[in-house]
């Protein structure tokens, strides 16, 4: 197999630059309020899209477990209002495990 170093460093560059440039450029100047609102909406739209993608594009044999695990985490996080992140993640892992054992 030919050397993978050009690929690895090429991928590293195109991964690092999109992560770095906005931080370097945008922390320096004031932001237009409309753009600021757009940016503050991103966490929510990104999370939702990531969840949906995770369920749709995972391998078929674990799709149901993913769906149920996600629902379990969601319900758990709503009922445990404070500090429920770790417990909710555990709930999703355990439910997913149970579904996979069926």
């Amino acid at each position: 197999m030919k050397s993978l170093l050009p690929l690895i460093f090429g991928m590293a560059a195109v991964t690092y630059l999109p992560r770095l440039l906005p931080l370097i450029i945008m922390t320096e100047r004031p932001i237009n309020p409309l753009i600021k609102r757009f940016l503050l909406y991103i966490p929510y739209t990104a999370l939702s899209a990531l969840i949906v993608r995770g369920i749709m594009e995972t391998s078929p044999e674990i799709r149901l477990a993913t769906l149920i695990g996600v629902i379990a985490a969601g319900m758990c996080s709503i009922y445990l209002s404070k500090g429920g992140l770790v417990l909710s993640v555990m709930a999703s892992v355990i439910t997913a495990l149970l579904v996979l054992q069926l």
């Binding site: 909406y41 929510y44 739209t45 990104a46 999370l47 939702s48 899209a49 990531l50 969840i51 949906v52 995770g54 369920i55 674990i62 477990a65 993913t66 695990g69 996600v70 629902i71 379990a72 985490a73 969601g74 319900m75 758990c76 996080s77 709503i78 209002s81 429920g84 992140l85 909710s88 993640v89 555990m90 709930a91 999703s92 892992v93 997913a96």
Partner: peptide, 28 residues
Amino acid sequence: IGLYGMFMALLAPEAKKSLPVLFLAAFS
């Protein structure tokens, strides 16, 4: 799968508290 559970555990309480967040999440 726990990582997706984590995404949901981050999103769900925010969507419950705020209608705009619910709109953004549902739309997306």
